[in-house]
Write a protein that binds this DNA or RNA. Sequence first.
DNA 1: GCCGTTTTCGGCCCGACTGTTTTCAGTCG
Length: 574
Amino acid sequence: MKNREIAEIFETIADLLEIKGEAVYRIIAYRRAGEALRSLGRDVKKVWEEGSLEALPGVGKAIAAKIDELLRTDRLEFYEKLTAEVPPGLADVLKVGGVGPKKAARFWEELGITAIDELEQAARKGKLHQLSGIGERSEARILENILALKRQHTGRILLGEAWTTAQKLLSRLRELKGVQRAEAGGSLRRMCETIGDLDLLVGAEDTPLVIQAFVVFPEVDRILGQGGTKASVELVDGLRVQLWAHPPERFGSALQYATGSQGHNVRLREVAQKVGLSLSEHGYQDQKGGMIFCPEEEEVYAVLGLPWIPPTLREDRGEIKAAKDSELPQLIELEDLKGELHTHSVWSDGRSSVIEMAEAAIELGMEYLVISDHSRSLTIAGGLSIKDLQSQRTEIKRVQKIIGKKLTLLQGCEVEILANGALDYPDEVLQELDIVIASLHTSLRQPREQVTERLLRTIKNPHVDIIGHLTGRLIGKRDPADLDIEAILQAAAEHDVVLEINSNPERLDLKDTHARLALASGCRLAINTDAHHPDHFNFRRYGVGTAQRAWAEAPSIVNTWPLDRLQVWLKSRG
DNA sequence: GCCGTTTTCGGCCCGACTGTTTTCAGTCG
């Protein structure tokens, strides 16, 4: 049983207990345990085998026993009893906007509703508003939200997509009269791999005016809620956007609040409480009612004696303790990247020539650029024959002469890890290349042992320098290969093989938790764009965001190294 | 149900908006 499956069970338990009206902190405990499993990075089975389940944050005796039962028997008696009592379909009913545990319980008890479809039928027949305390407006809103839920394909969109939409909205907001500042918060600012909704924050004196101007933006399809300081809307493309507006002197605390995560904010407010302060989006309040305003986010943390915590760390994954102990990492930044180690050109499936890619790299101030086209067996992507590879070398040398010393071009290759575990070129060919990236594109669905073995064999090949997009996942489209991540990380650390964080927003592979585990295992990483066009160099911000979420510092990322150091390393590998 | 250099028991973040009511519960982030 996988981490995610166990997390889902705990989250459903939390929902059902809430509908049952159980103690709220018991419910929170199950949600926190679910979150802990999702952000673990390691296979919980390994933790279980070590007997250290209770060392996980949010996992105590009772929940550890439940994880144990699930891993041993694939079943959970507590869960089975609970679902016999409260229909599990009610957990889905909670996903409908405007329906929380209290209403779900009443629909079930008074109307016998146990699933979303039944709720829809009841709403259409006007049965909901016959209940006391529920009017026709609530009924209409619930029906509307059921239809909205059905329209949404996955519910979450890719980071890259959210980024683009947010930038458009922010620049429009900044043009509004009276707006002094506008920033994105939420999971976008934290650079999560997918985004559920956009959280935008504006600093302005006349906040209702800004809110009113925002809700009539042409891309707004419907208004879900609107007050003097916040509005919630759905855009024509279905994306939901929250806008908060606060006076500039409160911008820092408001931005901190809007950035989250919820878990981080709860922890921070607990720290505030211990020194007799109450923290909200408006600022700090002392016990006598006096306010401390924070125009800048740094001040929110400074009041508690903490250094500013970068948004990408704010996941309640130990960052507040690290801040207290002055042990926050010196995070990698975009400016630290000195070059790019994984790109494609028209020689295989890229859309630009070597010189076009080189010129774009120069424009971005890179010191070096690796052209790494696909190997021969990936015919669908125009993989290069050994002869083509030699012609390409001539071409790269020719371009190098044209561009001079502004950029150093290296010839690499993204070599296929074949289904049988061999590489797509013989060692003699790999040896001629400046750098070798080995990747899986095919037979990703092999059983765990087999795919893992392919990767282990690849890592042991002395000519392989980097493993590209380790799991092969495409977020929301293709599941990652089933791998023994820990065995692979251990081997990579041992053989000094670098693992790539592929920055393409569809991949982000390694993902944050795996990258964090890789660093803890002693692996080095590279942040690569896998660019097939100069525009794709923009993906670097997502790769850096992912690396930051893994608590990565620049020295662990090989393409922050200057060229001479990189070349010494490559030479040492033979 | 978890957790502890204030605690092994008694705490566990905080406010905005909505709808249906007449003062607030429910939902949401």
